[in-house]
């Protein structure tokens, strides 16, 4: 038996918004630790890794590990029926269940909506993401600022070169209409920690990425005030959004473009 209750259905809704344009389906792996989703885009260039820790739920029970194979567009339809302040409870029988139940409860407890979502068998190829990678450059900034940079620059071109040097971090883009270069610098004096920009550099780093995927990653901005972007030569970029203090995270990995 699997049963988990989250006080804010909106968190789950935001998680889904953060992944559904990039991947169409995935296995939600449930264990005592929590709920984990790892999925790649169709081109196998980027990967999203979501973790919702058990302690982030009001109630969490998972007797046996199970994978809920879900078509994300369908889950999105169900979650769109949740009210802004609704709580959500997810239930499933053990492995082999054909459906999962989603129940939304209004904060006053006077409105309860229940859906049975059809599950599917998904052969998901799990990649082993090394956890001990050290990155030569890390940029922490407000997630709204990251979203704005990617949104602005993606109108100019479809590839972006991120360069971190002693002068700051620059985002260089070129396209048919011309070129753009946006440079940001550390600003650790901002009043609120969430408004600070912190650039840490072990060594100057310059890598090129497909803009399209970075645009997908900005869909997670509503989940977190800040985003951390970590890069190193010739390894995938990591873009990380933490959910709450301890609730979990959405991490995206993007393979770099390499000059031939």
């Amino acid at each position: 038996m699997f049963e988990a209750r989250m006080a804010q259905a909106s968190t789950l809704k935001k998680v889904l918004e953060a992944v559904k344009d990039m991947v169409s389906e995935g296995n939600f792996d449930c264990s005592e630790e929590g709920i984990c989703l790892q999925a790649m885009d169709v081109a196998h260039v980027s990967l999203v890794n979501v973790l919702l820790r058990a302690q982030g739920f009001e109630m969490f029970r998972c007797d046996r590990n199970l994978a809920l194979g879900i078509q994300l567009a369908n889950l999105s339809k169900v979650l769109n029926c949740a009210g802004k302040d609704d709580a959500v409870t997810v239930k499933a029988e053990d492995e082999g269940a054909d459906t999962a139940e989603f129940m939304f409860e209004s904060s006053k407890g006077d409105r309860i909506t229940t859906f049975e979502l059809t599950l599917m068998d998904i052969d998901s190829e799990h990649l082993g993401v090394p956890e001990d990678t050290t990155y030569t450059a890390v940029i922490k900034m407000p997630s709204t600022e990251f979203r704005r940079i990617i949104s602005d620059l993606s109108t100019i071109g479809d590839t972006v070169t991120i360069e971190v040097s002693k002068d700051g971090a620059s985002f260089q883009v070129s396209g048919d209409i011309g070129k753009g270069n946006l440079c940001i610098q550390s600003n650790t004096a901002a009043d609120k920690p969430s408004e600070r920009v912190e650039i840490t550099m072990e060594e100057p780093t310059k890598q090129t990425y497909a803009m399209r995927y970075l645009s997908f990653f900005t869909k997670a901005a509503p989940l977190s005030d800040t985003v951390t972007i970590s890069l190193s030569p010739d390894v995938p970029l990591v873009v990380e959004f933490n959910i709450g203090e301890e609730v979990g995270y959405v991490k995206y990995y993007l393979a770099p473009k390499i000059t031939e």
């Binding site: 081109a43 770099p256 390499i258 000059t259």
Partner: peptide, 14 residues
């Protein structure tokens, strides 16, 4: 020009 690499080049199957 630059070439898009695949994630499998960096991340192996566990």
């Amino acid at each position: 020009g630059s070439k898009q690499t695949l994630l499998s080049r960096f991340f192996g199957a566990p």
